[in-house]
Amino acid sequence: MTVSTPTTEDGRTGLHRIRTEPGRALLAFDFDGTLAPIVADPRDSRAHPGAVAALSALAVHVGRIAVVTGRPAGVAVEYGGLDAVPGLVVLGQYGRERWEDGRLTVPPAPAGVAEVRDALPGMLQDLGAPEGTWVEDKDHAIAVHTRRAADPEAALDLLRAPLADLAERAGLAVEPGRMVIELRPHGMDKGAALTALVGEVGAASVLYAGDDLGDLPAFAAVEELRATGIEGTKVCSGSTEVAELAERADLVVDGPDGLVDFLVELAGALDA
C-alpha cells in the first residue's frame, strides 16, 4: 500500500525504519490542530472522527503511541476519546502530566501560576483587552486566547509585551501559539518530553506530528535524536496560520483530515 512520501531524505529514512521495524517505533502527536481541528473555543475541541480508529489500528503494530500536548492530560483524553487507543501514553502540560492505563499523574502546580491567575483579570481590564479575549486556566499554566476577538492579531499584539512582563515577574515562560499566548513553568516543552519518552521505550525510530510553534521543540528533538542513530520523521499538520513548522517538516499534510489519511495509509501498509 502506498504511503505519503516525505520530501526529505532523513524523513524518508525515518518512515522506512518505522515500516520495517514497527515494534521499535514511537509515534507521537500533538492534539489541537493535529488530531483535532482548531475551533474558536478550545473547550469545544474534539478529536477528528477518524483519529481514534487510525491510532488504534497503528497501536497493534508499533512500539508505542503517544500524545504530547499543552492541554492537561486528562482533558486531552476526555476530549479525544483517547482511552480507546490501546497502550496509549498522554503527556499533558508539555510533559508535566502523564496519563497511562487510566492512571493520571499530576505534580503540584508552580507558585508563579497562582500569581498570574490573580493578576490577569485586572491587567486585561486595564489594557482594554477587546471583547472575545478570554483566559483558559490549565492549573499548571494560564493561556490567553484572542481567536474570538474581532481582530485576533491586533488583540494578540496588544497583549504580547504585557504578558511577557507578567511572566517574567512570576518566573514563568511565554509560549506563543495560534491566537494564544500561554504562560507556563520553565523546563516544560514538547522536545524534552519526547526525548525522555524515546529513551524510556527504547525506540529505534520516532515520528512526531504537530501544527504549531509549541511543536518546534519536538521537531528539534527529532533532529537531535537522528544524530544519535534514532531515525525520525517530522510531520506538519499544515495550516495557513503557522508557516514555521511546515518549513522544518519532512512531510506536510492537509490538517487533521490529511493526518488521519496518512495514518490510515501507514496502518494499511503495516497490515500488508
Rank of each mutant, 00 (worst) to 15 (best):
R160K: 04
L159K: 02
I181S: 02
V201C: 09
L159R: 03
R184F: 02
L172H: 05
V201R: 12
R169W: 01
A196T: 11
L197A: 10
A149Q: 08
A164N: 03
L197V: 11
D189S: 10
G202D: 12
V180M: 10
L156E: 14
R184K: 15
E175W: 10
G202A: 13
A192Y: 02
A167C: 06
E200G: 01
L158R: 13
H186V: 11
E200S: 12
G171I: 09
T195P: 01
K190D: 01
L194W: 01
D189L: 04
R169A: 13
L194M: 06
E182P: 00
A164F: 00
A196N: 01
L197W: 07
A196H: 12
L172D: 09
A173N: 08
L159Q: 05
A167M: 08
G202P: 08
G171D: 07
A155P: 12
A167W: 01
T195V: 07
R178E: 14
G191Q: 09
L197T: 05
E175Y: 11
H186S: 12
R178N: 15
G171P: 10
P152R: 04
K190W: 03
P152A: 07
L172A: 10
G191V: 06
A170Q: 02
R184G: 04
L183D: 10
A150L: 13
D157R: 14
P152M: 07
L163Y: 00
V180P: 00
E168W: 05
E153R: 15
R178Q: 15
D165Y: 00
G199A: 02
A149F: 00
V180Q: 04
E168G: 11
V201L: 08
R147S: 06
R148G: 06
A203T: 02
M179I: 00
G177I: 00
G191L: 07
T146E: 02
R147A: 04
G187M: 14
A149G: 00
G171V: 09
A150Q: 11
A150H: 08
A203K: 12
E200L: 06
D151V: 05
V201W: 02
A203C: 09
D151Y: 03
T146C: 06
A150T: 14
R184T: 15
A196R: 15
P162V: 07
G187T: 13
A203H: 07
H145E: 11
D157K: 12
V198L: 08
G191F: 02
I181D: 07
A150Y: 00
A173V: 03
P176Y: 05
P152H: 06
V144P: 01
I181Y: 11
V144M: 06
D157N: 12
A192P: 06
M188T: 15
L166V: 10
T195Q: 12
A164S: 15
A167D: 02
V201H: 01
L156W: 06
A170V: 08
R178V: 15
A154S: 14
E200N: 05
P185A: 14
A161S: 07
A173H: 11
R148A: 15
A193N: 07
T146N: 04
G187A: 13
H145L: 11
A173W: 05
A193S: 14
